[in-house]
Design a protein around this nucleic acid. Structure first.
Lengths: 153, 153
DNA sequence: CGTCATTAGTTGCATTGTCAACAATCTTCG
DNA sequence: CGAAGATTGTTGACAATGCAACTAATGACG
């Protein structure tokens, strides 16, 4: 018994590796963040993106693109985070369609605590990765990210 | 205005890159597989794992570990795939607790078509990756996968 | 200006997955 | 043997997300 050649395609296997690596890390670090910092990993990702943005705010669609969710998903995510007091919505002064999600003081505090925890956990996972390994990985991932631009409907 | 140092942690950024790269690829290739081959990407992943396994079958928990889902999730996933006729459940002759998900002829056919489509799409995404790039990426991802073993409750 | 196409965000509905409790079965060891 | 503990898979209740339809606002262009 032997397998059809196409299912052993090199790229299928590589992509499978990528999925497995990411999912395992997520499954390890996600619950850890929830347990040790009290917030889901997606929330952290949102807070982080906001903190790194001009004025600590991003429009809903910009956020959607950055964290790879639909705008519908982001609406509800921000609903929850706003209810928790970590972000707040602000209208855009020049375009009344857009609304910004903006980091609150509470959100900034939570983010810093969570980032500390997260960084510590990551150091454990990446324990045997040297600087050059990380550089190489970063570059490859960047090329991959650029190879899959978001869609143009 | 400057950011708290911890949110610019090297590893946090690298992990963010991994997430972004994976999610973008998934968002590009997932819908493509659904549109061109008529099945969700997770289904493909299941069929692929089964096809690569001894006897084209895997226990529910083995499957859960391979595709990074809970056993509860796998139960329902296999429910749907069995209803579609792509897999079938078989009792294990030596342990009556375990049940195997087993590839059907239909499933094998679907898998081969889907794999062809998938491989073609992947070739597009990985267009400017050479053999040595892929080797490097594979090795790094493997180390990462091993660095995050599944949990021991 | 006025109309038409485009864009941003929200919402109802359906789907998918998790979590925790559970039943059935197996294993260990007194 | 037989009781206690582990392990496998399923299920009910629930949370999160996608999709598609919708509203509101903007922009393009005759």
């Amino acid at each position: 018994m032997f397998s059809s050649p196409v299912i052993d395609d090199r790229l299928i296997t590589t992509f499978g590796r990528l999925a497995e690596a990411y999912n395992r890390l997520e499954r390890r670090l996600g619950p850890a963040m929830q347990a040790e910092a009290g917030l889901p990993h997606v929330w952290f990702e949102v807070l982080l993106r906001l903190a790194r943005s001009e004025g600590e705010q991003l429009s809903m669609s910009a956020l959607a693109e950055q964290i790879t969710l639909t705008t519908g998903g982001v609406t509800r995510l921000i609903d929850r985070m706003e209810a928790a007091g970590y972000v707040e919505r602000r209208p855009c002064p020049t375009d009344r369609r857009v609304s910004y999600a903006c980091l609150t003081d509470t959100g900034r505090g939570v983010l810093n605590r969570a980032a500390t925890v997260h960084a510590r956990n990551l150091r454990e996972v990446f324990a045997d990765f040297g600087e050059s390994d990380l550089d190489t990985l970063d570059k490859l991932l960047d090329r991959l990210r650029e190879a899959a631009p978001h869609l143009a409907p």
